[in-house]
């Protein structure tokens, strides 16, 4: 084993990249859950986003269009979930699971002819001046644009939830949908919008995997990333900034175990590969201190 082959700067830089797909999916799910809806279909929306993004990017040659396609695909799948849970009043847990199973099948079907193709490259930005700072530059300021989109989304989500009226209404709907309904807010419409936003974000996260991180399409490539995003929302106590911490913690774990694998640590590869999942469980056990939105997962039916 040769631990000196691990470069700490590269490690920290790739941590940000590894955290981004989960961060993107988790920020969407955070909004959904703050609106009082539990969508367990993140994994399904993510993988659908991954395949939609890949197909669009390959056929147009533009990764940017790919990301837009992924967001649309994810939002469309989320809309199915929204119609079922909000208008047909189905059980959210069961519908979320159905969405994941459906998404896995759908993505495999769409992606059939795209296995083994390489995605159009998405060059890293070298941000002038900031990117030239020693150590910090390569870690923080020399990434592809989507890393920064993720960070901006976190900031924007915090700002929206806590500084705007729309955010206040969204939180009210999540805390007590009956009271919000009595105040005249359109509970169902707000939730549908939140669910679609969540789907679009999950789609972006998935596309980040297939277009930047891997960058290829393989069936089932999300490998539980959607579920980890769900776990990180719980870990973060439904607060945007803590989400960042959770995603980086997880990203760090993933990158570290990959580096240890490459360095030839004496632990079998399988045990290293399972470590991110075990870490997620450990983190859930010791740090799920936050309070869930009161109406989370409850069915809203406006009675007269």
């Amino acid at each position: 084993m040769d631990l000196s082959s691990i470069n700490p700067i590269l490690l920290l830089a790739s941590l940000m990249v590894a955290a981004t797909p989960i961060l993107l999916a988790a920020i969407g799910e955070l909004i959904v859950e703050r609106a009082g809806v539990l969508n367990l279909g993140v994994e399904g929306m993510m993988i659908t986003g991954a395949v939609c993004g890949f197909v669009v990017a390959v056929s147009t040659g533009s990764p940017w269009l790919g990301f837009i396609g992924a967001a649309v695909g994810g939002a469309f799948l989320a809309l199915l979930f929204g119609i079922l849970t909000q208008y047909l009043l189905s059980n959210q847990v069961a519908t979320g699971l159905a969405l994941t199973l459906f998404g896995l099948g759908l993505s495999a079907l769409i992606g059939q002819g795209y296995i083994g193709i390489k995605a159009p490259s998405f060059p890293d930005w070298h941000i002038p001046l900031l990117g030239d700072i020693p150590i910090i530059g390569p870690i923080v300021f020399q990434h592809d644009p989507m890393v920064y989109v993720g960070l901006i989304l976190v900031a924007a989500t915090w700002w929206f939830l806590h500084k705007t009226q729309g955010g206040l209404v969204l939180r009210a709907v999540g805390e007590n949908h009956d009271a919000a309904h009595a105040l005249g807010y359109k509970v169902t419409r707000i939730r549908i919008l939140a669910i679609m936003f969540g789907g679009a974000c999950a789609g972006l996260g998935g596309a980040y995997l297939s277009l930047v991180r891997v960058p290829q399409w393989t069936e089932g490539m999300t490998a539980g990333a959607g579920w980890i995003a769900l776990a990180i929302v719980v870990f973060a106590g439904w607060k945007p900034w803590r989400l960042l911490l959770g995603a980086y913690l997880f990203g760090g774990m993933t990158v570290l175990q990959l580096n240890l694998q490459a360095a030839g640590l004496a632990i079998p590869v399988e045990y290293l590969s399972m470590s991110p999942y075990i870490a997620t469980i450990v983190v859930l056990v010791i740090m799920s201190a936050g309070r869930a939105p009161r109406s989370l997962g409850r069915i809203f039916h406006a009675s007269r």
Partner: peptide, 20 residues
């Protein structure tokens, strides 16, 4: 394609929840 069957199974659960 094999994935079509997986999709069919997922669809079945969807429709069930919808008509439920």
């Amino acid at each position: 394609p094999g994935a079509a069957i997986q999709l069919l199974q997922g669809m079945l659960l969807f429709f069930l929840l919808a008509v439920d």
